[in-house]
Structure formats: structure tokens, C-alpha cells
């Protein structure tokens, strides 16, 4: 029984971390329609700044994020305005924009990675913050992982409420569903998409800050997070924040239970198997367009 709770609690915290990773991409891809391949680099960017502030100046990552998150918003907005807006303007369809943004952000990936490599090199970076053990129903979990879970759930639910309960949120959803028709009801599509992209950048930087507290990372590791985030939002239904959280928790639980009861070497395979099964049954994801 203890073993079961162990697996359950580990799975939920891991799922929370995955949910956190995917939140920002859900806004960027689901709403702003930018398939951002440099997403993982943005995450590493947040992690790197938190690491630098902590190791060089002893600034707590939580305090540091007061500076990092606004910076991420600015960088996100600037990236959208300068690099992506021209693509948005000239793309006739949503599909065309996806392909264009994919290529552009692929380039961005190397620019960001190059800057970070030049700044700190390719070595492994690691520090510990809030790594005291917390007893959760007999299972010891790092406080930092619990914090990541709590923030993922809070941010996810707040965003979900904002999108479904407010006027601005309704406009954002209209934009996600059909950007052309949204203009007919006086939604400033480009401005709103820019904000959604910037908010996505803030969330991914936040994920980076939190993850840096417990994961060892290097500046070339971004692609791992991009892949994970993509799987989660496609599985949950693109643009659906609640779906993303559910998918992330499912992945975390499957990984933890397979590792505990079957074999840890099958965790990756079981994650992809779950992804496949979900897509076979619901091609638009768990909470895809059909259910919206």
C-alpha cells in the first residue's frame, strides 16, 4: 500500500512538473498559433538566469523571478513583434503560419542556444533550492517539486478560469478557434496574439526557474522540454489548458507506476504508447476542438 501511495504521489508531482512545462506552449501554439520550436530554449533561459542569480549573488530563485518574469514578457513580446509578426501578416491560412513559424522558431532556437553557450558554455549546471524533504502521506518529496506542482495547478486553473469566465478570455478563445472571424467581432487579433505569446514566454520562464531548483541542466538541453511540451499539448488538445494539465498528470502517473510496478526502462516507451492510444481514440486530443 505504501508502495502504491509512493508511486501515486511521485506521479502527481512529476505530472505537475510536466503540466508546468506545457502551459506556455499551449498559449503560444494554441492561441497565438506559433509552433515555437525555441520553446525549450526559453525554458532553459529562465533556468539559466535563476541559476546565475543564485550562484553568483545568492538571490533566491523566487525573488529572482520578480525580475526574470517581466524580462521574459518583454522578450516574448519583442520576439513576436519583430520576428513573428511579418510571418503572421503574410500567412494566408493557419496551416501556412504553422509551417512558417516552425521554420522561424527553429532558427531562433540556434540563436538563443548560441547566446547562452557563449555566455556560460555547455557544461552541466545545478544548484539546490528548497530541497528539504516534505512528508506527504509517508512519502518524502522535495519541497521544490511540490512548489512546482502547486504553481502549475494554480497557474493552470487561473488561466483556465480567465479564459472561460472573462470577456478578454472569450476574445482569446475566439482567436484560438478562428482568427479571421474573431476580427469580425472587433477582436484585435494581432495584439491579442502578441500578448498570448508574451504570456506564454512568462509561463515558460517560470517553469524554467522552478525546474532549475531540482533538475541538472545544460544550455543544450532545451529540445527535451520542447518535445515533452508538444506531446502534452497535442495529447490534451491544442489550446485547451485543462486538457494539458490532465494529459501531463496522466503522463506523470504512467511514468511513475510503470517505473514502480513494471520496469523503469519502459517509462519512455509507456509515455509514447499512452500518447499514441490517446491520439488513436481522440485524434484532436483529450479535450480537442470537438469537445469545446
Amino acid at each position: 500500500m505504501l508502495q502504491f501511495f509512493d508511486a501515486l504521489i511521485t506521479g502527481i508531482t512529476l505530472g505537475g512538473m510536466y503540466a508546468l512545462i506545457a502551459l506556455g506552449l499551449n498559449l503560444q501554439y494554441g492561441v497565438a498559433r506559433i509552433l515555437n520550436l525555441s520553446y525549450g530554449e526559453m525554458l532553459i533561459g529562465g533556468a539559466l538566469l535563476a541559476w546565475a542569480l543564485f550562484t553568483a549573488h545568492g538571490v533566491s530563485p523566487l525573488v529572482g523571478s520578480l525580475a526574470i518574469l517581466p524580462l521574459a514578457a518583454l522578450v516574448g513580446l519583442a520576439t513576436y513583434r519583430l520576428a513573428l509578426m511579418p510571418l503572421v501578416r503574410r500567412s494566408p491560412t493557419r496551416e501556412a503560419l504553422e509551417v512558417d513559424s516552425l521554420l522561424a522558431s527553429f532558427g531562433l532556437l540556434f540563436v538563443m542556444q548560441g547566446i547562452m553557450l557563449a555566455a556560460v558554455g555547455g557544461g552541466y549546471l545545478s544548484y539546490g533550492y528548497l530541497s528539504t524533504s516534505v512528508d506527504v502521506f509517508g512519502t518524502l518529496i522535495g519541497a521544490n517539486r511540490l512548489l512546482a506542482l502547486a504553481i502549475a495547478l494554480t497557474a493552470g486553473l487561473l488561466l483556465y478560469a480567465g479564459l472561460t469566465r472573462t470577456r478578454l478570455g472569450t476574445a482569446v478563445r475566439a482567436l484560438a478557434v478562428d482568427p479571421v472571424s474573431a476580427q469580425l467581432v472587433a477582436v484585435d487579433v494581432n495584439r491579442l496574439a502578441g500578448w498570448a505569446f508574451a504570456l506564454g514566454a512568462v509561463l515558460v520562464a517560470l517553469a524554467g526557474v522552478l525546474i532549475s531548483m531540482f533538475l541538472t541542466f545544460s544550455v543544450t538541453m532545451g529540445v527535451i522540454f520542447t518535445m515533452k511540451a508538444l506531446i502534452i499539448i497535442i495529447m490534451g488538445g491544442v489550446g485547451n489548458l485543462l486538457g494539458g494539465i490532465v494529459a501531463a498528470l496522466m503522463l506523470g502517473l504512467v511514468e511513475s507506476f510503470v517505473a514502480t510496478y513494471v520496469d523503469p526502462s519502459l517509462t519512455l516507451a509507456s509515455n509514447y504508447a499512452l500518447f499514441l492510444v490517446v491520439l488513436l481514440i481522440r485524434p484532436t486530443g483529450l479535450f480537442g476542438k470537438a469537445s469545446r
Binding site: D6, L14, L215, S256
Partner: peptide, 20 residues
């Protein structure tokens, strides 16, 4: 005697099994 994939982000289940 267990293997795990590279880039596994939470190794707690492995440590938990060793602990048992």
C-alpha cells in the same frame, strides 16, 4: 537490477525500489 532511460526527470521511483 534495473535500467532507466537517459533524461529521466524524476528518479524517485528507482530510489524508492532500492530503499525497499
Amino acid at each position: 537490477d534495473r535500467g532507466y532511460p537517459i533524461a529521466t526527470q524524476d528518479l524517485s521511483p528507482i530510489i524508492a525500489e532500492a530503499q525497499r
